[in-house]
């Protein structure tokens, strides 16, 4: 622990923390994207969409060895911890960086840094805000104005939200921003952990690009498919609820 504290005191250590937490979050994103592919696999024999089963599977993960929800909460806490450490480390580094150049250049020019690298703080802040909204939207269901939320109806919840263009488009934009963050962040974490070298640089750089684009594209498919109605509605009752809901909303205004 003492070693970790000392490590965190240094800027390389903070970078290390940001890299490791970034790696955890990147891992989560991969799982999150993979899991959501179940949207496109339709419904089971019982008429319940696969994605809803998947949601239930996550809740029950670890059972019966663990009571339901425990593993899920463990993962959630780890992710929360990662987000907090990531943000704290980056903010501290950013503060150090600002102090390191009290007087800036009159004429500025960049020779190598990509926009993705230069705007990591901006994309990061947006992503942080998005994470909060996203959880309120789809996990806790506290943002009914974006689409009626029913716990457990993963598919319908998404269908109701994303069939509205003004929900779908900001999500799409956000996915691209996440892609930018990953474009630099995923390679950067290998460099920070000292795992990159000229020999494997092309591979790791390619890995970062493929996954930044892949993750973004995968997540974009979801709102797009609902927006353009490419996915057949599997639950008529649910679809009705959408119409009821929008009708309610429109009439109340």
């Amino acid at each position: 622990m003492k070693r970790l504290k000392l490590l965190f005191a240094s800027s390389i250590g903070k970078k290390f923390v940001a890299a490791v937490t970034g790696l955890i979050m990147f891992g989560f994103l991969l799982g999150h994207a993979a899991g959501h592919m179940k949207i496109f696999t339709g419904a089971g024999a019982d008429g319940v969409p696969h994605i809803d089963h998947y949601g239930q599977f996550l809740k029950d993960f670890g059972a019966p060895a663990l009571p339901p929800m425990i593993a899920l909460w463990g993962a959630r806490l780890m992710l929360l911890g990662s987000v907090i450490l990531h943000v704290v480390a980056v903010l501290m580094l950013s503060d150090q960086n600002k102090k390191a150049r009290p007087v800036d250049y009159v004429k500025k020019k960049r020779a190598a840094a990509s926009p993705a690298a230069l705007y990591m703080m901006v994309t990061g802040t947006l992503i942080l805000a998005f994470i909060v909204l996203h959880i309120l939207h789809f996990t806790t269901g506290n943002l009914p104005m974006l689409g009626k939320h029913v716990h457990g109806e993963v598919y319908n919840n998404m269908a109701r939200s994303f069939s509205q263009w003004w929900v779908a488009i900001p999500y799409l934009i956000m996915m691209v921003i996440i892609g930018f963050h990953l474009y630099h962040g995923v390679w950067s974490l290998f460099q920070t952990l000292g795992l990159d070298n000229p020999d494997r640089n092309a591979l790791l750089r390619g890995f970062a690009i493929v996954f930044a684009i892949g993750v973004t594209a995968t997540f974009c498919l979801i709102p797009l498919s609902f927006m353009f109605g490419g996915e057949p509605a599997v639950d008529n009752e649910g679809m009705n609820r959408i119409y009821e809901y929008t009708h309610d909303k429109l009439s109340s205004h």
Binding site: N97, K99, A112, A117, Q191
Partner: peptide, 20 residues
């Protein structure tokens, strides 16, 4: 690296501007 920090240099964000 400890001395580097004490001197007031910033941290690395892997921009690669230095290399360029």
């Amino acid at each position: 690296t400890t001395q580097m920090e004490e001197e007031g240099f910033g941290s690395c964000r892997n921009y690669a501007e230095c290399e360029a």
